[in-house]
């Protein structure tokens, strides 16, 4: 059963050293199985907790926008929409800027500054999300309300087609603000990950390209990025997984409104924000179950994204022969 058997072969199982080896080996195996059971336990407990909600609402839970604790009618569509849209906004901004930072750090940055700046970005990636949340609430949301949102409404809001996206009064808080805060939070993560990935490109490849007379941009665009494409996509998916499940950076500035509006300036909610705001206030079993069901939806969503991310990162490792 345990992998210690190979060591014990030769009829020495009764030897004290072999016995303690079996104990230690079994202990490590047990710990490894605990890791496995944790993920399984999370899934099972969420399914069990969410069961009353799915029993009551069925699959319609996923496509219903209504969320009314008084009449006990619950649907996941509004928070699901908010989760996806805030993450999309975050990635649209953080991915290009993060890649830009990574290219800067591996190419244009003066050599003596590379290490300190790289370390600074890595340290920033570890700052807890609640810090971004509190800054978003007190500094960024008022700034959005007074400066950015009025400007957006006055310019983009007047345009046909996309005008609806920027309609309505400037609340400060809302979908766009939450997306931007999320972008700031995942930015150091993407930048340091992309930098690490770029550094795995063999120098010989770069040098050959430069030797052919390519410019810096061409080397990065046609040699470096294609070489690590899979890993980059994996890294971006990892960041997306974080953004989807992020709670604190979003909860402060999203507004917690269970509705879907075309305007990204309006308040909305995300799955994690809804759970964080309402869970301790949920008074009825069906209300609690509906929130757990939201959690299950989020878990499945992030599981798929993270699994895909891992698959891609593994492929890079296999290619690099590590």
């Amino acid at each position: 059963m345990t992998a210690t058997t190979d060591y014990e072969s030769g009829g020495r199982a009764a030897h004290p050293a072999a016995r303690s080896d079996r104990v230690f080996g079994t202990l490590t195996l047990a710990a490894a199985v605990i890791v496995l059971l944790t993920l399984l336990g999370v899934f099972v407990s969420l399914v069990m907790g969410a069961w009353p909600a799915f029993h009551e609402f069925g699959a319609k839970f996923l496509v219903t926008e209504k969320w009314n604790p008084v009449t006990e009618k619950f649907g996941a569509l509004a928070p699901l929409y908010g989760t996806v849209i805030t993450s999309v906004i975050a990635m649209l901004i953080a991915v290009p800027v993060g890649l830009g930072i990574a290219i800067f750090l591996t190419e244009t940055c003066p050599r003596p500054l590379r290490r300190p700046l790289g370390i600074a970005i890595e340290l920033l990636a570890g700052i807890p999300s609640i810090i971004y949340g509190i800054w978003g609430l007190f500094v960024f949301a008022p700034f959005m309300q007074k400066v950015v949102q009025p400007a957006l409404i006055a310019t983009l809001g007047k345009l046909p087609l996309i005008g609806d996206l920027f309609a309505g009064p400037p609340y400060g808080i809302g979908i766009l603000t939450a997306g931007l805060i999320l972008a700031m939070m995942v930015l150091p993560f993407i930048a340091s990950l992309a930098r690490d990935i770029f550094l795995t490109v063999p120098d010989m490849l770069r040098e050959s390209a430069y030797g052919l007379g390519m410019t810096r941009w061409e080397v990065n665009r046609h040699i470096v990025i294609p070489h690590v494409r899979t890993a980059l996509v994996g890294g971006v998916m990892l960041a997306l997984g974080r953004a989807l499940g992020e709670t604190m950076a979003v909860t402060f500035v999203i507004g917690n409104a269970h509705r879907i509006t075309t305007s990204i300036l309006q308040p909305g909610t995300t799955i994690s924000a809804a759970i964080a705001n309402e869970f301790t206030e949920a008074t009825t079993p069906l209300y609690t179950a509906s929130l757990v069901a939201l959690g299950l939806v989020l878990f499945i969503l992030t599981f798929i994204v993270l699994a895909a991310a891992q698959w891609m990162l593994r492929r890079m490792k296999a290619k690099a022969g590590v």
Partner: peptide, 18 residues
């Protein structure tokens, strides 16, 4: 690796149930 990046609020829900 999934647990490493899983949303922490989900862990909260799990321990709440448990």
């Amino acid at each position: 690796d999934i647990l490493l990046s899983a949303p922490s609020i989900i862990v909260g829900l799990f321990v709440y149930q448990m």
